Simulated scan of single mutants.
Amino acid sequence: MLAVEVAWSPQAGEVRVVPLRLPAGSTVHEALRQAGVLEASAGLDLTQCRVGVWGHLRELSDGLRDRDRVEVWRALRVDPKEARRQRSRRGRT
C-alpha cells in the first residue's frame, strides 16, 4: 500500500488536503478519483488545471510512489505582479 496525499484548491482561499492509502502501482488519475477531485462538486475543471507530484508536472497516467503528494494547480486569474500593483494602489501591503 502507498501512503499518498492529494492537495487542491477548489476556489481561491480554500485548500483541501486528503491523505489516502492506495494499492501499489496506482496512478495520479486514481489518486485524484479516490480523493474526490474528479467529482463535479469539487469545483475544478481538470481541463483548465495542471497536475504535479511534489511540484513537478506529471501526466494523469504516471505512477505514484509511497509518500508522494499529488497537487492540482488552478490557472491564475490575475498575474501575480499585477495583483501586487493593484494592492499597492489601494494602500494595502
Rank of each mutant, 00 (worst) to 15 (best):
V4G: 08
E5V: 14
E5P: 12
A7R: 13
A7Y: 03
S9E: 14
S9T: 12
P10S: 06
A12W: 05
A12E: 15
G13E: 03
E14Q: 10
V15M: 08
R16E: 13
R16H: 13
V17A: 12
P19W: 00
R21A: 15
R21C: 11
L22V: 01
P23M: 05
P23R: 00
G25C: 05
G25Q: 05
G25T: 05
S26H: 04
H29C: 09
E30S: 15
A31G: 09
A31N: 05
R33E: 15
Q34S: 13
Q34K: 12
A35S: 09
G36Q: 05
G36R: 02
V37Q: 06
V37S: 07
L38M: 14
A40E: 14
S41W: 01
A42C: 09
A42N: 04
L44I: 07
L44S: 10
L44W: 04
L44Q: 08
L44Y: 06
D45C: 09
D45A: 07
L46A: 03
L46V: 00
Q48T: 03
Q48F: 04
C49K: 01
C49S: 07
V51I: 13
G52E: 08
W54N: 11
G55N: 08
H56C: 12
R58K: 14
L60G: 14
L60C: 10
S61N: 12
S61Y: 05
S61K: 11
D62N: 09
D62C: 10
G63T: 01
G63S: 11
L64Q: 09
L64W: 07
L64E: 11
D66G: 09
D66K: 02
D68N: 12
R69H: 05
V70D: 12
E71T: 01
E71K: 02
W73C: 13
W73G: 08
R74P: 02
R74L: 12
A75K: 06
L76N: 06
L76F: 04
L76Y: 03
R77S: 15
V78I: 09
V78A: 07
V78E: 03
V78Y: 00
V78G: 04
V78L: 07
V78K: 01
D79W: 00
P80R: 05
P80A: 13
K81F: 10
E82N: 04
E82H: 06
A83E: 02
A83M: 01
R84I: 01
R84D: 07
R84A: 11
R84H: 02
R85T: 02
R85S: 07
Q86G: 10
R87Q: 05
R87G: 04
R89P: 14
R89Y: 06
